[in-house]
Design a protein around this nucleic acid. Structure first.
Length: 200
DNA sequence: ATTGGGATTACA
DNA sequence: GTAATCCCAATG
């Protein structure tokens, strides 16, 4: 393990690959957030792709463009945040300008400063409960609505190249979208096979 | 397996 | 105002 500041940041060009490719490429990468309380980081272990106009499960379905979905129509590599009840969910915007696509980060494996994460999530009884869900990891890492629209190649919120050895990628249908017609069966959820820190 | 919580945004 | 939402944690 290294201090997050020493890890190699992923450049804007990294985010320009096709959304489904990027969803897989992000697995194993390291998500880092620096706050006044300290810096915390996690290895991305689970992602879900949401692909624009034709994806009934996406907020940008049929090019629905509102104040909330606005960043999705911009360039890749920016942060799309939205709230779900009391939780903040973190997404990476992908696709060209005017292609409203994004990747939801569903879980991470604690990498740096687990103590701070535990402090932010006092109810977690073990280290996988710290970050094995989309609302959990944002809380553990200290990501909130202030990060909406933030470019992911610079502080205080960025993604770095991972250091995992080769691993197998598993895929399946996405979660929490039962009301999304046939889109609910698209195998657009990806995770690191065998990793303990995935949701469900 | 089911349900209460109580944020935020969109649309009438 | 009211309905809807890419969830979480505590219950039976």
């Amino acid at each position: 393990m290294q201090h997050p500041n020493k890890l190699k940041r992923l450049p804007p060009s990294f985010f320009e690959q096709p959304t489904l490719e990027l969803a897989k490429a992000l697995l194993g990468s390291i998500l880092i957030k620096e706050t006044n309380d300290g810096t915390a980081a996690g290895i991305i272990t689970e992602t879900e792709a949401y692909i624009g106009p034709g994806d009934q499960a996406a907020h940008s379905y049929q090019n629905r463009r509102t104040k909330r979905t606005e960043v999705m129509f911009g360039l890749a590599g920016f942060t799309y945040m939205y709230t779900m009840h009391t939780h903040y969910l973190f997404n990476v915007v992908t696709g060209q300008a005017d292609n409203p696509e994004a990747i939801l980060i569903r879980s991470v494996e604690p990498y740096f400063n687990k103590e701070l994460m535990q402090q932010r999530r006092p109810k977690a009884r073990n280290d996988y409960q710290l970050t094995n869900g989309p609302g959990k990891l944002t809380k553990a890492l200290g990501i909130d609505m202030n990060d909406y629209g933030h470019p992911l190649h610079q502080k205080p919120l960025w993604i770095a190249k991972g250091e995992l050895d080769a691993f197998t990628i598993a895929s399946g249908s996405r979660i929490g979208i039962d009301n999304s017609g046939e889109a609910k069966d698209y195998p657009w959820r990806f995770w690191i096979k065998g990793n303990r820190y995935v949701s469900r």
